[in-house]
């Protein structure tokens, strides 16, 4: 048990107990932790919190649609070498001058354990995760150009996030510990809000939460607002000096911070109107 309970969350990131456990299981078993969940539920922030909580460095590898698995291991800069051979510069005969380690390669080469975040793996090509299987299993790779093997001295803690825009291959999933971040229930959300805004007026929190969850339940929204949008919205309200002064039952300022789609905007506006009409008609029941 001793080597197990290592990560217990940080003061700026509220983490559920089973997520804590999954982080620790993944570190103890030396398997990557795959995090999925609605956009804006703090998948990326988790890695930051794990690194901070363990007191280790965080190496972030942001994945784009053009990212290749090789980029995370090392890059052999042929063009630079070609250029140097033509115009002079570095020692062209030493190929190592032109090998640059990627984020994963860097993590393996470190003396101490680090946390590696492979962010938004689903952005890459469908084959991308498959190209990393051996490297993630054995935590080492071979560079044919220099005939050297880079092996991890300390198995890094690897956290992979996915917005499930593409499905991940089975062979890859098999090697992961999987955690799905559920959308926080109101109690947990309140805790999260309090961590971000310790001075928020009590009545403001309650009203904002009610409005927020009401909005989320609106039928037909293309993109439901999530935690990060709620935080942004509260930030906007605070910046505009609305702390505790605005009646959120009556109007919702800065709706654009919560809804990012024109269509959703209209739907929400219509629903609020209907709601207000209803509450205006039955003043005694409320």
């Amino acid at each position: 048990m001793k080597d197990f309970t290592r990560y217990t969350g940080t003061s700026d990131y509220i983490v559920s107990e089973d997520l804590q456990n999954d982080v620790n299981v993944s570190i103890a078993l030396g398997r990557p932790l795959l995090i999925k969940g609605e956009p804006g539920t703090g998948k990326t922030l988790l890695a930051r919190s794990v690194a901070a909580g363990l007191g280790q460095e965080l190496l972030t590898w942001n994945i784009k649609s053009t990212t290749k698995a090789q980029d995370g291991l090392y890059i052999y800069d042929t063009v630079q070498r070609l250029n140097d051979s033509r115009f002079g510069g570095n020692d062209v005969s030493n190929i190592e001058n032109y090998i640059k380690l990627g984020k994963l390669g860097e993590a393996f080469a470190r003396e101490t354990q680090v946390v590696v975040l492979i962010d938004e793996i689903d952005k890459a090509d469908i084959e991308f995760p498959n190209d990393l299987l051996a490297e993630l299993d054995e935590m080492k790779f071979y560079i044919p150009e220099t005939k050297k093997t880079i092996a991890a001295r300390q198995r890094p803690a690897i956290i992979i996030t996915s917005n499930s825009e593409k499905e991940l291959p089975d062979a890859f999933l098999r090697r992961c510990v999987f955690h799905y971040i559920e959308f926080p229930n109101p109690e947990l959300m309140e805790k999260i809000v309090r961590v971000h805004f310790p001075d928020l007026a009590e009545q403001m929190i309650q009203e904002a939460m009610t409005a927020f969850y009401q909005l989320r339940e609106t039928e037909g929204l293309r993109k439901k607002p999530s935690t990060s949008e709620l935080i942004d919205w509260l930030k906007a309200l605070l910046a505009a000096g609305h702390n505790g002064k605005v009646d959120l039952q009556k109007n919702l300022p800065f709706l654009g911070a919560l809804l990012k789609n024109e269509n959703d905007y209209e739907i929400a506006a219509r629903q609020r109107q209907a709601f207000q009409k209803r509450s205006a008609m039955t003043p005694f029941r409320r």
Binding site: D18, N21, V25, L34, K36, D170, L173, R174, F178
Partner: peptide
């Protein structure tokens, strides 16, 4: 429950 789920089931 949580442990076996996160190790055995890889999609929500």
């Amino acid at each position: 429950y949580h442990l076996s789920r996160s190790l055995l089931v890889k999609t929500e």
